[in-house]
Deep mutational scan, measured.
Amino acid sequence: CHSECLGNCSQPDDPTKCVACRNFYLDGRCVETCPPPYYHFQDWRCVNFSFCQDLHHKCKNSRRQGCHQYVIHNNKCIPECPSGYTMNSSNLLCTPCLGPCPKVCHLLEGEKTIDSVTSAQELRGCTVINGSLIINIRGGNNLAAELEANLGLIEEISGYLKIRRSYALVSLSFFRKLRLIRGETLEIGNYSFYALDNQNLRQLWDWSKHNLTITQGKLFFHYNPKLCLSEIHKMEEVSGTKGRQERNDIALKTNGDQASCENELLKFSYIRTSFDKILLRWEPYWPPDFRDLLGFMLFYKEAPYQNVTEFDGQDACGSNSWTVVDIDPPLRSNDPKSQNHPGWLMRGLKPWTQYAIFVKTLVTFSDERRTYGAKSDIIYVQTDATNPSVPLDPISVSNSSSQIILKWKPPSDPNGNITHYLVFWERQAEDSELFELDYCLKGLKLPSRTWSPPFESEDSQKHNQSEYEDSAGECCSCPKTDSQILKELEESSFRKTFEDYLHNVVFVPRKT
Score class of each variant (00 low, 15 high):
Leu108Pro: 11
Gly110Pro: 07
Lys112Leu: 02
Lys112His: 15
Lys112Gln: 05
Thr113Ala: 08
Ile114Phe: 02
Val117Met: 11
Ser119Thr: 07
Ser119Val: 01
Ala120Asp: 01
Gln121His: 02
Gln121Gly: 01
Glu122Asp: 08
Leu123Thr: 05
Gly125Tyr: 02
Cys126Val: 01
Leu133Glu: 02
Ile134His: 00
Ile135Glu: 01
Arg138Trp: 02
Gly139Cys: 07
Gly140Phe: 15
Leu143Ile: 12
Ala144Trp: 10
Ala145Gly: 09
Glu146Asp: 01
Asn150Asp: 05
Gly152His: 15
Glu156Gly: 02
Gly159Arg: 09
Gly159Met: 00
Arg165Thr: 05
Ser166Val: 09
Leu169Tyr: 07
Leu172Met: 12
Ser173His: 09
Ile181Phe: 00
Thr185Lys: 13
Glu187Leu: 11
Ile188Phe: 11
Gly189Thr: 01
Phe193Ser: 01
Asp197Ser: 05
Asp197Trp: 11
Asn198Gly: 15
Gln199Pro: 10
Leu201Ala: 01
Ser208Gly: 14
His210Ile: 09
Thr215Lys: 06
Lys218Ala: 07
Leu219Gly: 12
Phe220Arg: 14
Tyr223Asn: 02
Tyr223Trp: 03
Leu227Asn: 00
His233Ile: 06
His233Arg: 02
Glu236Leu: 06
Gly240Tyr: 12
Thr241Glu: 06
Arg244Ala: 10
Gln245Met: 09
Ile250Lys: 08
Ala251Asp: 03
Lys253Gly: 15
Leu266Gly: 02
Lys277Ser: 07
Lys277Asn: 14
Pro288Ile: 11
Pro288Gln: 13
Asp289Gly: 03
Asp289Lys: 01
Arg291Lys: 02
Leu294Pro: 00
Met297Cys: 07
Lys301Ala: 04
Lys301Phe: 03
Lys301His: 06
Asn307Ile: 15
Asp312Tyr: 07
Gly313Ala: 04
Ala316Asn: 13
Cys317Asn: 06
Cys317Tyr: 04
Ser319Cys: 13
Asn320Leu: 12
Val325Arg: 14
Ile327Asp: 00
Pro330Lys: 12
Arg332Pro: 11
Ser333Met: 07
Asp335Thr: 14
Ser338His: 09
Ser338Phe: 10
Ser338Pro: 14
Gly343Val: 06
Gly343Ala: 09
Arg347Ser: 03
Gly348Thr: 02
Pro351Ser: 06
Thr353Pro: 01
Leu362Ile: 09
Val363Ile: 09
Thr364Gln: 01
Phe365His: 15
Thr371Ser: 06
Tyr372Asp: 03
Gly373Met: 01
Ala374Leu: 01
Ala374Tyr: 06
Asp377Gln: 11
Asp377Val: 09
Asp377His: 05
Ile379His: 05
Ile379Trp: 07
Gln382Glu: 11
Thr383Arg: 02
Asp384Val: 15
Pro391Arg: 03
Leu392Trp: 15
Val397Ser: 15
Val397Pro: 11
Val397Ile: 15
Asn399Phe: 14
Asn399Leu: 12
Trp408Lys: 06
